[in-house]
Nucleic acid binder design. Structure first.
Lengths: 357, 357
DNA sequence: GCTTGTGGCGCAATCGTTTGGGTAAAATGC
DNA sequence: GCATTTTACCCAAACGATTGCGCCACAAGC
């Protein structure tokens, strides 16, 4: 906290050699004292010397030059993080978890946006590797990615976050389970005609959530045709477009819609309303991620909460292990459904169940 | 793009010395050829040699070790960026502009969240300076900040972004003008009883938007009492709480509300609706920033658009100048009001104007 | 009294670049 | 043909930290 006051007003930071000169000992001794945990420091210097060193270092506000350290040790204590876009609150939140966990272990992070473009992913990865980061966290892996195979071939330590990929360690939400939660909920509420706003087909999040929903829906006895699944972008615009398609097609409109992303859900809500449908009344809708917005919307949005901060924190933990050469398993965190006004009402009265109102 | 293929499968990157050895020349010559722009390179090597060097460097996928370079040159080609939180879409978007502009000039950026805490701001700044960044971009400066004075005393190059502070260069939206736009709009629509959800009192964005609104409102002949201005958090929760206060107090409720932040506006919309008010009908509301959500909400939200990407880009430009010792002036970018359903209707019919419907 | 240990430290190489100062040879000037 | 400049390089010293090795002094063991 107070380190700024003591860091010295001069522009040139104090070095090991400065400390050594002032103490009349060699810089290597200073290094050993400061660098090693106290048990290793034994043998390097007498406890009296060690004390003097530590005292002066604190006084002068010494902090080792990371560039010099990296040059010597070949490790930068920095991770690279690549996400589709930080303006997507989901990724931004995961990144907060990453930053927090990295900082806790004295690592720094570079983060870059790939805009979900294959070329940019590769370019940004190159930039980060040119910076000699110790490892990468990829939050934007595509289903058919070749990049991750290349990285593995080059022995670059990395883990996946947010989206998973068979054969690579990842920290994600259990998206299949999330989809299942929604299927159960909508089925129980009496819905039988549903549609899915499925997201981008190259993202495992979209694929898994949709698959979980559709599989469980079949198990429950429901029918979900190919044309009931609309692949779309993850933002409000994408949800709007998808909703237009759902409304615009021939036949009875669905009574419920599952959107694999809150923002797409919000876009869809706008469209439905524009078509005279009251969300939560004429049509139910459920989102995913339980963004802080969902509960606060004019019509509160039902949503599946994924533990975004934990996903980020866990990714860092895993990357540390990968760097240490340990075997790591992918982790899928359990989601939780929050039912709100947008899908709370029972809709479609079934003869067998005879739900009133 | 293809650099990854050529970067060599080996784990140890190729160095200047490697190239020099293979070419039978000295590494300093290689450095000069590769490092200097072609005009400076003249004098360092014959054009034939230069050609051979460049060709081999490309073949071997040489990329200079940034740590070694930094150690020698004392510059890291990295900026530190501190924001309240990246999960705030406004700051995340500005950061996208920062990253883009920094990358264009071959700089990298570290970004950290301060959660708008004074202690964390200082701590994060310390971490970044320990990393020896070439400069800082602060997106979270508080009105009475002492940190920025300390930084200046230490001759740390930095600029402000998003929020401004007298006496320091900043890249912001012209928030005063933004507030004025809203005042004009609401006055013209016939509103006379209004309230402001003002945001955090330590943020210049909040202060300026509120001041611009309130000043113009007086000029127009309106009355805005102290209790009509509710200071609050910038998120949906904050907007919700503020709206509760507005509704809950004695006397006639306002017919229009200006929220200095879209998310707070969304929270307020929820509250109003919960109290049986139809936004856009019974009560008008205008937000700020024109987040991508605003236009897509079930009831599209009027909002003042601020050029967030440009603010970020410009901050980088300014920081470059500061580092070069040039004099830089603060820049305030012009905002633009987008009127949508949430405030489109004329409300309060004035005798003098006789607005119908 | 001699070896053997060991605590406490110094020496110097090293990481990969950059850069001021050389120095031969070639080119130019007159 | 000789002095001078230019070309095209090389040398070596940094930058700041880490780390294997070595050395000296003192203590302990026998």
């Amino acid at each position: 906290m107070g380190s700024m006051d003591t860091a010295g007003k001069g522009r040139t930071p104090v070095t090991l050699k400065d400390l050594a000169a002032e103490l009349g000992i060699h810089s290597s001794t200073v290094s050993r004292v400061l660098h090693s945990t106290s048990d290793v420091a034994r043998g390097a210097a007498s406890s009296a010397t060690a004390e003097r060193v530590r005292k002066l270092a604190a006084e002068r506000g010494y902090s080792p030059d990371p560039q010099a350290t990296s040059l010597r040790t070949r490790r930068t204590r920095a991770f690279g993080v690549i996400v589709p876009r930080l303006s997507d609150i989901v990724l931004a939140t995961m990144y907060e978890g990453v930053e927090e966990a990295a900082a806790a272990s004295n690592y720094s992070t570079f983060v870059m946006n790939s805009h979900d473009s294959i070329d940019e992913q590769r370019r940004k990865a190159d930039i980060m590797l040119a910076r000699r980061v110790d490892g990468l966290i990829l939050g934007d892996v595509h289903a058919g990615s070749t990049l991750i195979h290349d990285l593995r071939a080059r022995h670059v330590p990395f883990v996946l976050m947010n989206r998973r990929h068979e054969g690579f360690p990842s920290s994600t939400c259990d998206d299949v389970a999330g989809g299942e939660l929604v299927a159960d909920h909508l089925w129980d509420a009496g819905h039988r005609r549903v549609a899915v706003i499925a997201g981008e087909p190259y993202a495992s999040t979209a694929i898994d959530r949709t698959a979980g929903f559709s599989q469980r829906w079949s198990e429950l006895g429901g029918e979900l045709r190919k044309e009931d699944v609309i692949w779309s972008r993850f933002d409000t615009e994408g949800g709007k477009d998808a909703a237009e398609k759902i409304i615009g097609r021939p036949g009875e409109p669905p009574t419920a819609v599952f959107s694999v992303n809150d923002f797409a859900a919000i876009g869809a809500m706008g469209t439905f309303r524009a078509h005279g449908l009251t969300v939560g009344q004429d049509i139910a809708i459920v989102g995913f991620n339980d963004t802080s917005l969902a509960a606060q919307l004019p019509i509160p949005l039902s949503s599946v909460r994924s533990p975004m901060l934990d996903i980020g924190r866990r990714a860092v933990e895993m990357l540390h292990k990968v760097i240490n050469g340990e075997q790591v398993d992918s982790v899928r965190m359990t989601p939780q459904l929050f039912v709100r006004e947008s899908s709370a009402a029972a809709f479609y009265v079934l003869p067998a169940r005879s739900i009133a109102g």
